[in-house]
Simulated assay, not measured.
Amino acid sequence: MARRIIPVLISLVLATVGTGAIMLYLRSADERAVEGKQARTVLVADRQIPAGTSGKVLRTKGYLRQVRMPVETLPEDALAQVTGNLDPLVTTAPVQRGQLILRAMFGTGGASGSGSGIPAGQMAVTARVRSAVFGPASLRPGARVAIFYTYTPADERKRDVVSGAGLEKGRDINSVTRLLMTDVEVISVGPAPTDGTGTAGTSGGGGSDELSVTFGLNQVDAERLAHAVALGGELNVGVLGDSSNVKPDSGVDNRSLFG
C-alpha cells in the first residue's frame, strides 16, 4: 500500500510546483509588459458575460479579474472596479473572456427584463453588419447611426427593386448602395455568429469584418430591415455626429462610384 501512495504523493508535489512556476512566469510576463511604462490596474472578463448581466452580479459572482496594463493602451472609460452605482445597470451586449471592461458596456435594462435597454415604443431587431468601413471600436451602445444597404437591383431600369438573389458579383453585374434608414439607435454590439444562424447577409457565418448589432426600431423600420435582410445584400452603418446631415438619395452604383 505504501508503495502505491508514494508515487501519488510525488505526482501531487510535482503538479503543485509546476503550477506555481507557471503562475510566477505569467506574473513576471505581465510585469515585463508594463516595465518602463506608466501602468494602472483595470478589469477584464475572466469568463464570458451574457448580455443583461447586472453590475452587482459581475462584482459578486467572480466574472472579473484585475490586470495591469500600460495607460497609453487604455480607453478613457476602462474600469478599475465595478462600484455600487453600476449595480442596477446591465451589460448591453455579450462580453467575451479576456475583454476589457468599459463604462460604455453598461446601460439600463428594458422593461421586458431582457437587459437590452429597448427604447420606449420600439423593438429590438438584430442584424449582421460589416465593420470594415467604420471600425468595430467606433460602434458603441447608445450611438445613433445611419444604415446603408448594398444590393443587386432587378435590372438597370428598376434600381429601386432588389433582385432577391443576394449581393451578386461579377464583371457585368451592377450593384447599388443606398441609405436604408437613419437616426437609428444602437442597443448592443457583439461578435457575429459563426454557425450560419445569424440574421443578416448572404455570406453565411460571421466573418472577421462583421458584427452582430441590435437596433431599436419602430414597427415599419423593423419590417424594412427584416425584409432587406431576407433579400440578401450587405448592411453597413455610419455613426452620426451632432451635425450630421443624412438624407435619402439615389445612392451610388458601379458606374457612378467616382461621380
Score class of each variant (00 low, 15 high):
D155Q: 04
D172F: 09
K158N: 15
V125P: 01
F134W: 03
P193M: 02
Y151L: 12
P141M: 09
A120D: 11
F106A: 04
V162T: 08
V90S: 02
D195E: 09
G115W: 00
P119D: 05
A93L: 00
T91F: 02
L139R: 02
Q122S: 14
P119W: 05
A137H: 07
A127C: 06
D160F: 10
E185V: 10
G170C: 10
P119F: 06
L180T: 06
I187T: 07
G170A: 11
F134M: 11
A111I: 10
A143V: 00
G166K: 11
F134K: 03
A137Y: 05
S114V: 00
G107N: 04
R128K: 05
K169W: 08
T194I: 11
A124C: 08
R103D: 14
R128V: 12
K169E: 10
G164F: 10
P141G: 07
V189Q: 08
L179V: 07
D160M: 07
A93T: 06
A93F: 01
G196E: 09
A192W: 03
E156G: 06
T150Q: 14
V189T: 13
S163M: 07
A200C: 13
G190C: 06
G135F: 05
R144C: 06
G98E: 07
A132Y: 12
Q99E: 15
G115Q: 04
P119H: 08
I101V: 11
T126Q: 07
G110V: 00
G135N: 05
G142L: 08
S116V: 07
P94N: 07
G98K: 10
R97F: 00
L139S: 03
P136T: 07
G170P: 05
T182F: 00
